[in-house]
Design a binder for these strands. Structure first.
Lengths: 191, 191, 191, 191
DNA sequence: TATGAATGAGAATTCATTCAT
DNA sequence: GATGAATGAATTCTCATTCAT
């Protein structure tokens, strides 16, 4: 009967928060975020009752964006290397294409205001990588690798690669390939 | 020169800042830091004219601590693998032994208040790693590896390993070894 | 005229305001009142254009409730003592039976937003007491008593008695009787 | 060594709060109080960590002012009537001479933010009245009067008298005398 | 007319920094 | 120099009121 809460406004606020946090850190004011979203200061609080809640929502939203990007066109039945490479490529490209989102996600991930509950949801993101590793082990490959290492290494080398690309965007393809080569070698390293 | 006590106070302030920032983020107040350092609120500003300056000084200080730890007992004339492993071990152990400092350094590194000048100083830290890589190339090893990759990979896999150790301190030795194995494999990966 | 349901809503709002103000003071928000009345926030303002107006209306309403209670079954032709005792008893019982309304009335009475006009209306409430006093004087009784004292004393000792009953409800009858005895003695005191 | 907290500033703040609350109710803003006290907005909070704490402090302060006024020159060894009359006179005169303080005390007394602890302290104020009543009972006078009634009646009729004086200051002496006569008669009323 | 989202002017605090002692 | 009170701009959040639906 009344004006319904608008999904657009909510999105605009999350977008503005992404930009503002990326630029000025989590200390940036809610009023600046509201202004960037072209929404009144008060309205921000009809969508997020608290600044902390906004941060949590943003964390969820950005992780979801990343997850969607990674899983788009995922070749579920392909071989181990192919699946891993798909994830790698999508992951690194997302970061290279969305530096602001990446920076915001990094900041938000470190915030102590993120609820354990919210953080738990996020864990699922790299679940697919772990499944690939499990498959590999089942196929008697990558057997010596302790379970969480595959996704940890993918993340670590992925972020490294994105940093390199951010510094030298022209060599993006080169870095991406080199990074994956390193990842694959790392995962296949024998004791 | 004529104020030995002052050096203590400065150190106490940096120490307090490390702890406080690690626990509550960079948003923590200067008055809390002063209190933790058992120094008056006003005094903090005779040592650091600005909160930003304190953050910059802390960045320098923590990087120096890390550099000192890494370079302690560095076998300057040993082989490539030995030198790299020394850096790796010291690096990872420092992180495992100083989780508070590590967390503070991570936060401070991301702060937008760090001057480019300050940041440039920090670059020197991993210079030694790059020298090792250069040596390796001179010796016709690791030749295919684009220059900044060695130190970038060391950092990325090092942080990954520290995270794993933080989660499972009992497996510290195992993670450290596995991490280095991965690093070495990654660096030797061929196109 | 053509909106019988609306009268209900208005009453529900006044009721909710009574409860909410009694519990949280006049600072309580209109949105809380609306919620308690099961009415939308906006609707409150179709019944009362302003929060101040709501407060004024509540003042009038509660005074009317009290007046109705006091005058119910008033023995207009009885003797002075009887009439006074009737008022006393009804007054004190109303307060004892309606602690929430009493508290709200007390708060609202002290509000600086009550218009002089509204307040003037309220004066009429104890008019009957003054008429009793006038009658008494006409009958050559209570002659020495300056006019406004009778109603003032009734009010003062009445509130005192209600407070005592609120603290010790079991002794209600005792307090009520003792209170009236004191009132009667006070009114008959000679210079 | 540093500037000491000033008793004057604290007093100025309490004074300002008295005036501002009396005029605009407890909803008045801390910034207005600070301005009236000629103190910065921030300073108010170095003296009272919270608005609620300011209200509690004011409650204590005003009650103390009243207690001091009442007990000044108290004839501890005089007869019952004399002691009661002393209290009465001082009480009523304080109220008549300090209408602003009285209004503030009334408002503050009703505030739900007053801690039970704070309120308990206040109870002692009328303790002297109760002692007078106990003495009277010991002397076989006022025997039939249930204990809390004496102080309750003093308060009730006292406030009534102050209201009358506020309305007609010229008749102050008359009202004061009439009030006490009524109190004395009320206390001596027999069942 | 009813609804509840939108608005923006405050409100109570906080905090980096200054300054009297 | 050391101290901690003083300052006031900035911050998060609330709330009476308006307005689109």
């Amino acid at each position: 009967m009344a004006r319904p809460k608008s999904e657009d406004r909510r999105a605009a606020l999350l977008d503005a928060a992404t930009r503002v946090f990326a630029e000025r850190g989590l200390g940036a004011s809610t009023s600046l975020i509201a202004a960037q979203a072209k929404v009144s200061e008060g309205s921000l609080f009809t969508y997020f009752t608290t600044k902390d809640e906004l941060v949590n929502a943003l964390y969820r939203d950005l992780r979801q964006q990343l997850a969607d990007a990674i899983m788009a066109g995922f070749p579920r039945r392909a071989g181990i290397r192919e699946r891993l490479e798909h994830i790698w490529t999508q992951y690194v490209m997302w970061g290279a294409d969305h530096p602001v989102e990446r920076r915001a996600l990094r900041l938000v991930s470190m915030a102590h205001v993120i609820t354990p509950a919210t953080r738990a949801e996020g864990q699922t993101l790299f679940a697919e990588v772990e499944r690939v590793q499990e498959d590999a082990i089942a196929q008697k490959r990558l057997r010596h690798l302790p379970p969480p290492l595959a996704s940890a290494a993918l993340k670590a080398l992925g972020e490294m690669t994105m940093d390199l690309i951010e510094r030298e965007p022209k060599r993006a393809a080169e870095w991406r390939a080199a990074g994956f080569r390193m990842l694959w070698a790392a995962l296949n390293s024998k004791p």
